[in-house]
Design a protein around this nucleic acid. Sequence first.
DNA 1: TTGCTTGCAAAGGATTTGCAACATG
DNA 2: CATGTTGCAAATCCTTTGCAAGCAA
Lengths: 146, 146
Amino acid sequence: MKSEREIFDNYLIKKNLRETPQRVMILDAFLKREEHITAEQLYDIVKKRDPSIGQATVYRVLRLIVEAGLALEVDFGDGVMRYEHCYNHPHHDHLVCKGCGKTVEVMDSVIEELQKRVAESFDFELMDHEMYLYGNCGDCRKKSRG
Amino acid sequence: MKSEREIFDNYLIKKNLRETPQRVMILDAFLKREEHITAEQLYDIVKKRDPSIGQATVYRVLRLIVEAGLALEVDFGDGVMRYEHCYNHPHHDHLVCKGCGKTVEVMDSVIEELQKRVAESFDFELMDHEMYLYGNCGDCRKKSRG
DNA sequence: TTGCTTGCAAAGGATTTGCAACATG
DNA sequence: CATGTTGCAAATCCTTTGCAAGCAA
């Protein structure tokens, strides 16, 4: 099984791109993070190690990471794109708390199957989907009850 | 059954807002449109009737329409918000063709029920959800086959 | 008259891009 | 060395906001 670093390196080679310290450092910081992360959060992390790094580089490398198949963009509708690991990380959707913003990865194979069928019933070949479930988590419900 | 116009007017009164020609005209143009529409598209339509109208007004009235419960925002992930009718228009999700952008409204009550259960299994009270199915429609598949 | 509304232009926030200096292979 | 790559700042894109003039009630 290839490591994420190898996959990234192979992607760079295939595309005739170069391995630079910035790229390695940003990939590294992204991989260390378990939760999804925004470009700005990643920039903040990387800046601590190398204050001379530019935001634009973070955005550019994040795109490469996605193109290499190591990250997926997730959009919770708040105007900021988030990135999450997708290599060796099975597909899932998101449950998002409207109160505290907490997110949970969820996956229901029956829903997945039904999505495919719904698409097919309209003669669409399903390639991809996004599903966000918005609600209130137990903690937030407790708080709002007083 | 109240008309959309009545609902809008009631909303204005309740909020101590005023009924202006701009508001009426923008609501009107929105209601005439069957498909979802972007702020800019709506602006283009309204501008023809009154070239002195400002974009900002369109954005502002669109927000009122949403608040009055007459429209819903839909986000196909291309960076532009779209608005669609929701009064007397049952809930549905969207199937979007990646080739030609065509959209189909879909609704599967089993999926809806399962979404609720998934949320509950994590002690979330489901308030809302978004589901976008992205694929290739029959026409686009035909074209790409040559 | 009161204070909500408007159009305009400027501001916003996230992301992208042009560019000249700078590294990598 | 030939090209990619970087950081910077300026540019984009969509949307929001401040403001003074203009209206609805």
